[in-house]
């Protein structure tokens, strides 16, 4: 469903993504795993048309995001939990998006319930929200259009243990309905629990990809596999 092919993105002299190729399949949760600065965010932002690739492509069902009509109905995204207007209420943030997508206001109430924001919380302006509440609202924006595909950048960031558990269940249910989930994280144990497939990136390159089970089989767990695969990539960066 999501296909990234020989994707390269340079910002001036910095290569953020370097000839990356991978895919995320329907019915599965795919995790993009890498240290800070490994190109995860740039890859996801390219996928939804916010960043232009230098070369290569990132497509959804074979098409660039920006060429899909009303794309957020098919592809839900959460790229930045802080991308909320501080002076707007949580509910209004969703109402605004629902208006653009052509959805009834009742969908806003449904989504608030799905992401676990109470009516009282939804009435508050987002400047008063904790990071966990922002993540929930951001996820609500992603789920608003009842999409077939979701793309989430660090969705577990700022969630408490109950929140992480809730997020895991939500994403698993979503995938079990045959939908596609692509998320990024560096929370290794969490990724091992939630992901079917893992793409390990470092320095913008895809270092390895396969099923979570295959990494657990070869290295004991995802953390050991990650340490082995990304060994040296941090040190290299310091030397540069």
């Amino acid at each position: 469903m999501i296909t990234v092919t020989h994707l390269t993105k340079r910002f001036g002299r910095v290569t953020a993504v370097d000839d990356a190729s991978f895919s995320a399949l329907p019915g599965r949760v795919t995790g993009l795993l890498g240290p800070n600065g490994s190109g995860k965010t740039t890859t996801l932002r390219t996928l939804v048309g916010l960043v232009r690739p230098t070369s290569g492509s990132a497509t959804i069902a074979g098409r660039p995001y920006a060429s899909l009509p009303n794309p957020a109905r098919n592809v839900g995204t959460m790229l930045d939990a802080d991308a909320l207007h501080a002076g707007r209420t949580g509910r209004e943030e969703l109402r605004l998006a629902a208006g653009i997508l052509g959805l009834p206001a009742s969908r806003v109430d449904d989504v608030l319930e799905i992401v676990g924001l109470t009516p009282a919380e939804a009435k508050r302006r987002t400047r008063t929200y904790s990071l966990g509440m922002r993540q929930r609202l951001g996820l609500g924006l992603a789920l608003l259009g009842d999409p077939e595909v979701v793309v989430l950048d660090e969705p577990a960031n700022g969630l408490d243990p109950m929140g992480i558990r809730w997020m895991r269940t939500l994403l698993r249910d979503f995938a079990s309905e045959g939908r596609t989930v692509l998320l990024s994280s560096h929370l290794l144990t969490e990724m091992q629990t939630v992901c079917d497939d893992v793409v390990v990136v470092g320095h913008g390159r895809v270092l390895a990809q396969g099923t979570t089970a295959s990494f657990v089989e070869s290295d004991g767990n995802l953390e050991e596999a990650f340490v082995r695969l990304t060994a040296g990539t941090d040190r290299e960066r310091v030397q540069q």
Partner: peptide
């Protein structure tokens, strides 16, 4: 300043 442009353009990439 509010970083909402990414959401705005994700909802309407044109």
């Amino acid at each position: 300043s509010q970083r909402t442009l990414a959401v705005t353009f994700a909802l309407e990439p044109r």
